[in-house]
């Protein structure tokens, strides 16, 4: 796992989806789904998450 989203912390606002340069994230109602094959571990989602629910391991 290169990206870990803490769904207990996530406020499902979709900001991370908006900044993902590869379109690897998706907001489905109240959770975020990751397409790991598309994620490039750039960490932008981690950087802008308002609560810090995302951890990207480089």
């Amino acid at each position: 796992m290169s990206i870990n989203i803490n769904r207990y912390k996530c406020g499902y606002c979709g900001a991370c989806v908006g900044v993902c340069p590869k379109g690897a994230l998706e907001l489905v109602e109240t959770w975020i789904e990751v397409d790991e094959s598309m994620c490039i571990q750039c960490g932008i989602c981690d950087r802008i998450c308002p609560v810090g629910a995302i951890e990207v391991m480089k």
Binding site: G11, A15, G18, V19, C20, G23, I44, I48, C49, P50
Partner: peptide, 12 residues
Amino acid sequence: TALKPVDIETCA
């Protein structure tokens, strides 16, 4: 449409 960090306000 991907936003760069400088292109988004992150809010609570």
